[in-house]
Design a protein around this nucleic acid. Structure first.
Lengths: 192, 192
DNA sequence: TGGCTACTATGACAAGCGTCATAGCCTGCC
DNA sequence: GGCAGGCTATGACGCTTGTCATAGTAGCCA
């Protein structure tokens, strides 16, 4: 049953990430996570002997690489690539997700940072690493689009900042308007 | 002792807001709040019969008006006002705060949204209201600086989005670089 | 067959949480 | 003086949390 086991482990990590998106670290209960993952409770201490910290850390890792892959998909799916178009695609993606799930889930990294940046160094570090993982493919794409590496790093950081903040505002007012607004306003600057 | 009493109430609200900034709603314990406020525990059920929800709501209200006043101070303190300069002043303010407190505290609104947007309608609503309270003086200032009202609304939203996101990144990597970066990048666009 | 390993099951633990009930203080007013 | 009411003190409740100890099961390999 190695397949089933690894399935359990992966499902737990995935479900933990989804819980982070919904209610942050403090609002994520381990019993609920395993229940939603349809995994046995015993798997927790078997696969994650490091406890909640380990699980949250792995969830952030997973989220970072997932976001990076999503960026790659956007890049490869663009007919005429440009920084502004990439940014717009990412924002559209998030807007659709928020809309579809009734603003239930935001960004797991934000959830971790807001709850743990000052209280849990390991989780803070994992959140920072996840942001780097997410930002790297964006930077690379911008380089491919002709920006200098230095400029690309700056723009990718700007994109992530604006995206994260727009997510907060959007969830607060249950409206995707902020997402669309920042895409519209920033695209020209990114393409300049 | 009416002074002392009102002092207690206000200190509790203030301290609750500071706890929100540090660890979000889930990480804020009421016993710790009253202890840090040097207030008696009994004041909780006396002043806040609505429980934690009421306290968090009032803390967000307080934070919103505080932020609005801070904006007004920045505006009135600027020799040659411009949207970009206002934005830079706000970001500098936050950067200094993060630096001084070792990245301990972020934005209370973000803490509330990330933890409660999907689980607590009252708090989500209070967070949204706080953002409006914060954004209004910014919008008004931009109108005074010659922008159309419609344009001012757009720009103030953009400013808040970027600020909130930059705070998340800055706390994640314990570096004020994102704050300085977005100020530098966005100022020209705001002044255009 | 027996043992070793991977995984699961379950109950218990201490700690913390928000909330509430109850009683006591202390001041001001009649 | 005596009563009323704003405020405080304190203990307890029920619940949930993360963590752990312990036992149990299933499958592979010798």
């Amino acid at each position: 049953m190695q397949e089933g086991s690894r399935g359990h482990r992966e499902r737990i990590v995935y479900e933990a990430a989804q819980h982070l998106r919904r209610a942050g670290v403090g609002g994520t209960g381990l019993r609920q996570v395993v229940a939603d993952a349809a995994a046995p409770r015993g798997s927790l201490q078997h696969y994650f002997p490091g406890g909640k910290d380990q699980l949250v850390t792995e969830a952030l890792d997973w989220a970072g690489t997932w976001a990076a892959e999503r960026v790659a998909q956007h890049v490869s799916g663009m007919r005429r690539p440009s920084p502004g178009r990439l940014f717009t695609a990412m924002l559209d993606d998030w807007a659709a997700e928020l809309q579809a799930r009734d603003f239930e889930r935001g960004c797991p990294v934000a959830g971790a940072v807001v709850d743990c940046a000052d209280t849990n160094p390991a989780i803070r570090q994992a959140a920072s690493a996840a942001l780097d993982t997410w930002r790297r493919p964006i930077t690379e794409a911008l380089v491919t689009m002709g920006r200098s590496r230095r400029r690309a790093e700056t723009l990718s950081t700007l994109m992530l900042c604006t995206l994260e903040g727009a997510l907060v505002l959007a969830r607060a007012q249950r409206d995707t308007a902020p997402l669309r607004l920042v895409a519209r306003e920033l695209a020209p600057l990114l393409d300049a």
